[in-house]
Computed example of a mutant assay.
Amino acid sequence: MPSPRLAILIASVVREQRHLRDLTQCELAEAAGVSQAAVARIENGNRTPSITVLEALLAAMGVQLVVGVEPLDAHLDARMDDLAARPIAERIEALALDDLLDRLPDLPPVITGSTAALLQGAPVPVEALEIALRWQDSKLFTSWLENNYGRRWNARWSEWGGLWLEPEEPGEHRWSTTYGEIRATMCDELPETIEVRHGQRSYQVVPLVELELTDARAADLLRRYRDRRPTDAG
């Protein structure tokens, strides 16, 4: 299965090239011999196109595909360098994190994963709000998803939708909503947290040491960041 990173890169290239030529999705689709819905899915990063379709889209815009290689996950290093140069407040605002937290139902707002790492100062990429959610609160959360156009991630088809919203149903605990993407770690009891403050707001987050023990993805990012930090001289 193609990686989400590749889908995001292709989406960015197709969208950028289309905008440079002032084409609508319908115009590009007609020129490439595909449907507008297919162009929309590709540009949203919900579907990785076949090489044939991708080449048709690019050819319709007068460009062609060039294949290259780079060190594994080099894009993460570049992203971390960019994030390290930006204030935490700016990164929080870019994610619209506070707005999404304010709109969640009356649940204990325990933040985990890469989102918790960001709030503790680590310049790691954050793709979604990550929270710890108790199983006993799943019905309340499901009701909120229904009221906010929630769609569950369908890993089989690499797209949103086609699955029941309820966390109890099989599938990844990952949803898109009107206000952004949410990923949940379901648990019987919420993990221990610490409080961090930014501006006038406080957040309850899982501490970094615990993330490194319990969250494989966050742990990998934190180790990558730590290994790349220059050591102090002397």
Rank of each mutant, 00 (worst) to 15 (best):
L72K: 13
H75Y: 14
H75G: 11
D77L: 11
A78I: 06
M80Y: 05
M80Q: 02
L83K: 02
L83R: 04
A85S: 11
R86Y: 05
R86W: 12
R86I: 08
R86A: 09
R86D: 14
P87N: 06
I88C: 10
A89C: 10
A89K: 09
A89H: 10
E90A: 15
R91F: 02
E93C: 07
L95C: 05
L95K: 04
A96P: 09
L97Y: 05
D98R: 09
L101E: 05
R103D: 10
R103T: 08
L104H: 03
P105L: 03
P105N: 02
D106S: 12
L107F: 11
L107I: 14
P109M: 07
I111F: 04
I111L: 02
T112Y: 07
G113I: 03
S114H: 10
S114T: 06
L118F: 00
L118S: 00
A122L: 09
P125I: 04
V126H: 06
E127L: 13
L129C: 00
I131G: 02
A132Y: 06
L133V: 01
L133D: 01
Q136F: 10
D137W: 04
S138T: 12
K139S: 15
K139D: 15
K139M: 14
L140W: 08
F141Q: 08
F141G: 11
T142C: 00
E146F: 00
N147Y: 14
N148D: 04
Y149E: 15
G150Q: 03
N154E: 03
N154L: 06
A155N: 07
A155Q: 09
R156E: 15
R156P: 14
W157M: 14
W157C: 13
W157R: 14
W160T: 08
G162S: 05
G162F: 08
G162H: 05
L163I: 03
L163V: 01
E166V: 11
E166D: 12
P167G: 01
E168M: 13
P170H: 06
